[in-house]
């Protein structure tokens, strides 16, 4: 009788241990996917020191260019396999070199499709004080009308009628008709194979010229600034949602 209780306890505990260790012993194998972002105006790489021309023929310079990438998902259109990166928010900032390369741990496998959100989803816009990429310190949060600036472009242009010829586009808004969130999806030009030994690299280019003319023509002379949610912001977002293209897919 004396021995039975410890025995019972022991078997219970081993059972428990087993159930815990089971999930620990078989971790999913993961590979590293690196996303690299490069910024251009048409075919020229972006530099804060250079002047560019948009497709309307207006000259401009850039002094700030940053945007949020979130809700990244990789999938395989053949097998239906999907991996969604929960709680992943990245602020890509031209000024911060390290921010333009993001490294993701993804379960091993073959992937054919890359999808992400350009901006911060509405839930995080409504969830109070956040940290890291979403920290208001990054200058991407409106203090007077709560919400994230999804993408920001600042600079100057001789066509701007603003003070010091400034151009200032702070594009945001997440509610109903003011929603500027854009889902970007690419069928990858070649299958990305991820396993523990190989790192895959996808290089994306973002062309700033799209901001001014794509679906809508938004001349600097008419719109030197857009700093509140609303119709104009939605039009800018409609334009820049096509700024990305896949430059290359490779391994390294």
């Amino acid at each position: 009788m004396k021995l039975r209780l410890p025995l019972l306890l022991f078997s219970l505990l081993t059972l428990l241990l087993f159930s815990f260790s089971n999930s620990k012993v078989k971790p999913t194998e993961k590979g590293t996917l690196v996303l690299q972002f490069q910024h251009l105006v048409k075919d020229k790489y972006l530099s804060f020191d250079s002047a560019y021309k948009n497709s309307i023929g207006e000259d401009f310079t850039v002094s700030k260019f940053k945007y949020y990438i979130s809700n990244i998902e990789l999938s395989n259109s053949n097998t239906g396999k999907k991996h969604f990166l929960q709680d992943s928010y990245f602020l890509i900032d031209e000024e911060v070199v390290a921010s333009k390369t993001i490294s993701l741990e993804i379960p091993s496998g073959d992937y054919t499709t890359l999808r992400f959100l350009l901006g911060v989803d509405s839930i995080k816009n409504m969830s109070g004080a956040q940290a890291d990429a979403l920290d208001p310190i990054n200058g991407m949060f409106w203090t007077w009308n709560s919400g994230y600036i999804m993408a920001k472009l600042e600079g100057s242009s001789s066509y701007s009628k603003s003070v010091h010829n400034k151009i200032e586009y702070h594009i945001g808004g997440f509610k109903k008709e003011d929603n500027t969130l854009k889902t970007i999806q690419f069928s990858l030009p070649q299958v990305v194979k991820l396993d523990e030994t190989k790192k895959a690299l996808i290089t994306l280019e973002a062309d700033i010229a799209t901001w001014f003319s794509n679906k809508y023509e938004l001349p600097i002379s008419q719109y030197p600034a857009c700093t509140i949610p609303g119709k104009l912001a939605v039009q800018f977002a409609e334009n820049y949602k096509d700024m990305f293209r896949i430059k290359s897919v490779g391994t390294n």
Binding site: M126, G128, F141, W144, S146
Partner: peptide, 20 residues
Amino acid sequence: FHHDGGINHLEVQPLAPLTS
């Protein structure tokens, strides 16, 4: 919060007076 309801969460309200 605010007279116009522009702030959507108690935690982020202080950002307005702190930085204004």
